[in-house]
């Protein structure tokens, strides 16, 4: 395996203003990359939803929708996986318990705020999800999609 496509992986970086709507650009870009990596349509749809939630969180929560603050999406292409890191500039930190919610619809009926599904969706849809601190001090979420290759016909 040449190192150009080797374990270190190739990196594409996307820097977006913190304005709602820009998560769609990240979704489209990641989907275009995933399609070229040969991911199945179903997995691409899952990736779109997960990355949309991650970037929306970064815009609304981490950067408090201050358009001057950036959301950075780093897409790393490796032979067996696609890694997506989304980080914000951390105007507001994400509490650990917020990253582990297990919402239930019956509870949501009773609450005025029916939200809280974003991080749960990311966890349900991606193979790995991990919340850390971004190098610059903001919130960062690292998500991994494993490439599944069919055992037959893949020489």
């Amino acid at each position: 395996m040449s190192d150009a496509e080797g374990v270190t992986g190739q990196v594409i970086e996307l820097r977006l203003p913190s304005r709602l709507g820009y998560e769609r650009i990240a979704m489209d870009t990641a989907a275009a990359l995933a399609r070229r990596m040969g991911l199945a349509d179903e997995r691409i749809d899952a990736l779109r939803t997960a990355i949309g939630e991650a970037v929306t969180n970064a815009i609304e929560h981490g950067n408090q929708a201050d358009a001057a603050m950036k959301v950075v999406v780093v897409l790393t292409v490796r032979p067996a996986e696609l890694i997506i890191c989304v980080s914000d500039q951390g105007r507001r930190a994400l509490a650990l318990e917020q990253t582990k919610t297990q919402p239930r619809i019956a509870d949501a009926f009773q609450r005025a705020d029916k939200g809280g599904w974003g991080i749960w969706l990311m966890r349900e849809l991606m193979d790995e999800v991990e919340f850390t601190l971004a190098p610059g001090g903001g919130n960062q979420v690292r998500m991994v999609v494993h490439l599944e290759r069919s055992p037959v016909g893949d020489q």
Binding site: I12, E13, L14, L16, T29, A32
Partner: peptide
């Protein structure tokens, strides 16, 4: 909005998309 790519032919289509 900013996109940063490695200098490998083929990655231009990601910027394009």
């Amino acid at each position: 909005m900013q996109i940063i790519l490695p200098s490998i032919l083929g990655y231009e289509v990601i910027a394009r998309d």
